[in-house]
């Protein structure tokens, strides 16, 4: 069975019963987080073009509902790893826009001290254990974190974000096999945005329904509409319950789309996809879908939505100024953090 990719086929938002005040507040908060990611990424793109950000810079525009919907289902003490396309998940996890922008600028107050950059965002206090730059390489790390959870017998979960191209890599297979074999509380979130750089899923994978790969490991799995925030959140909640209560892993295939190029050095459309395809996908912008729902449900009006967007833009502008003015790491930082400080070892 092949479901449609995130496309134009879905109906208009369905109206639900008007939520209570606390829920309404929560819903507006998630809208703000999605706006924050969108505006942050736009600003990062701009800063990249100005040469203020170097190296590779992969934007999350179009995939915001996946990061925000997932984090909404997690607890503060859960562990998270992600690929290099992780600004959005980090923002959704509660990193300040300032520390991420400063990291992208390579500055000292960046979340990794300016030594990681766009692809390596870390904040141990938030259980966010890295953006990782080797496709598939962090999937076994997550299995290891889930192993540690089982070893210590706590009810945390370990969550891993990766792209659909990573499932053709041996690390994915090895990591999921062990997680299922040992019944580990891991959640593997495959953000299927249809492309690994310029290679469409159909040109790289022998099967098109990535969720079915879980069958090889007798692992629970689901296909999720990644443009619908609540669909993501409830699928992750089911996986979290399975992990915390049944100690069993899940593979979620979350269908989404990247609206920008693979990285800042790749145009939005080119040899591998058409302008029409991108424009068609943009009709299901996760932020538009979510704000329309909020308006339909009467918890938000148009000026309210614009005000939320404005406050996100202000936060991003502040982050940009902060990063621009922040100092570079001290020259001695080149030599630190290679090994543990001597006194630390026991």
């Amino acid at each position: 069975m092949t479901l449609p990719m995130a496309g134009t086929s879905a109906a208009q938002p369905t109206r639900t019963k008007k939520p209570d005040a606390a829920t309404a507040e929560q819903w507006r908060h998630w809208l703000r987080q999605m706006f924050l990611i969108r505006r942050f990424e736009e600003k990062a793109g701009e800063a990249y073009s100005l040469g203020k950000i170097g190296g590779f810079c992969h934007l999350y525009i179009g995939q915001e509902a996946v990061g925000v919907g997932t984090m909404a289902a997690l607890r503060d003490d859960d562990y998270i790893t992600a690929s290099y396309r992780e600004h959005g998940q980090a923002l959704a996890r509660g990193f300040s826009a300032r520390t991420i922008m400063a990291e992208l600028f390579g500055k000292a107050p960046g979340c990794s001290g300016g030594k990681g950059g766009s692809m390596h965002l870390f904040d141990v206090s938030k259980g966010f254990l890295g953006g990782h730059g080797i496709v598939g390489g962090h999937i076994p790390l997550t299995t290891g974190m889930a192993f540690a959870i089982k070893y210590r017998n706590t009810d945390q979960v370990a969550v891993c974000f990766f792209g659909e191209a990573a499932v053709n890599n041996g690390a994915f297979h090895e990591a999921l096999n062990m997680a299922a074999l040992w019944k580990l509380p891991a959640i593997y979130i495959c953000e299927n945005n249809r492309y690994g750089m310029g290679t469409a899923l159909e040109r790289a994978s022998a099967i098109y329904d990535i969720s079915e790969r879980a069958c090889s490991y007798d692992m629970a799995n689901e296909v999720v509409d990644g443009q619908e925030l609540l669909a993501v959140k409830s699928a992750v909640e089911r996986a979290v319950r399975r992990a915390r209560e049944e100690k069993a892993p899940t593979l979620l295939e979350v269908r989404t789309y990247r609206f920008m190029g693979h990285s800042m050095s790749d145009p939005i459309h080119g040899h591998y996809r058409t302008r029409e395809e991108v424009e068609d996908q943009r009709k299901r912008d996760p932020i538009t879908l979510w704000s329309q729902k909020l308006i339909a449900d009467g918890v938000l009006d148009e000026p309210g939505a614009r005000a939320i967007d404005k406050s996100a833009m202000d936060e991003v502008e502040d982050a940009y100024r902060f990063a621009d003015e922040a100092p570079d790491p001290a020259p001695e930082a080149l030599w630190t953090d290679v090994y543990a400080p001597v006194e630390e070892s026991r």
């Binding site: 562990y79 390489g137 790390l141 290891g144 090895e174």
Partner: peptide
């Protein structure tokens, strides 16, 4: 590859 990564991940936490 898999269990080396499991070791690294467990050590990270």
């Amino acid at each position: 590859l898999g269990f080396a990564g499991v070791g690294v991940g467990a050590a990270m936490v």
